[in-house]
Structure formats: structure tokens, C-alpha cells
């Protein structure tokens, strides 16, 4: 199952509460700030085993977020990669 998350606060926390093995999370829009772990850890500091987390690179660039300041386990996609994630996973849940 793919979760598309667009906010980093409660919305992302609620999502993290429900994911389980083999799920995929895609951070978009302002949720990409949750990828940052320096100097402060974010809500993503406890990695959930078996859950892949992606961030939408164009939203990172738009916000000037340097990948070097982010959790190493996060993977990055552009919009084409976003489409691939949608193709590879079902169902898709948008968390707004």
C-alpha cells in the first residue's frame, strides 16, 4: 500500500501509526521537511522495518533542502518516479 503524505505534523504521525511491512510512504509538499535530521531528528527518527520512505525531489529542491541533511535511508523520486510508485503499489491512500 502506498501512502502519499503532504504534511509533516499529525498527518505524517497518523500515517506512521498505521503503516506496516511492505508499505511505501511518499513525502510530498511540506511533508518533505520531515526528511531532515540535522541538527534535530524528526518524527522519522525511528525507522519502521520493512517500510520504504521516499521523498519527492522537486518539492525538496523547491524548499532548498539539501539531501546531505536528511536521513540516509530515505530514497528520492521525481514525478516520473512518483508515477512508478503509483503503478507498483495498490491501494493508494492520500493523507492530507
Amino acid at each position: 500500500m502506498l501512502y502519499i503524505v503532504n504534511k509533516k505534523g499529525d498527518v505524517l504521525r497518523n500515517c506512521l501509526d498505521t503503516v506496516s511491512t511492505d508499505d511505501v510512504i511518499l513525502l510530498i509538499e511540506s511533508a518533505v521537511y520531515a526528511a531532515v535530521n540535522k541538527p534535530q531528528p524528526s518524527v522519522l527518527s525511528e525507522r519502521i522495518s520493512g517500510v520504504a520512505i521516499y521523498a519527492l525531489l522537486p518539492d525538496m529542491r523547491a524548499r532548498g533542502i539539501d539531501v546531505a541533511r536528511c536521513y540516509e535511508y530515505i530514497q528520492y523520486v521525481d514525478y516520473a518516479g512518483f508515477v512508478d510508485l503509483v503503478e507498483q503499489n495498490n491501494p493508494v491512500r492520500s493523507c492530507c
Binding site: E29, Y79, F82, V83
Partner: peptide
């Protein structure tokens, strides 16, 4: 909100991939 923009870019990419 950014939703309409995100949707737009997503749709462009999907169409480009032949969906």
C-alpha cells in the same frame, strides 16, 4: 495550496509515460 500543482505535474509525468 500546492495540491493543484502537484496533481498537474503528476499528470504530465503519467501521460509522458503512456498512461
Amino acid at each position: 495550496y500546492q495540491a493543484a500543482d502537484t496533481a498537474w505535474h503528476f499528470i504530465q509525468a503519467a501521460i509522458a509515460k503512456g498512461h
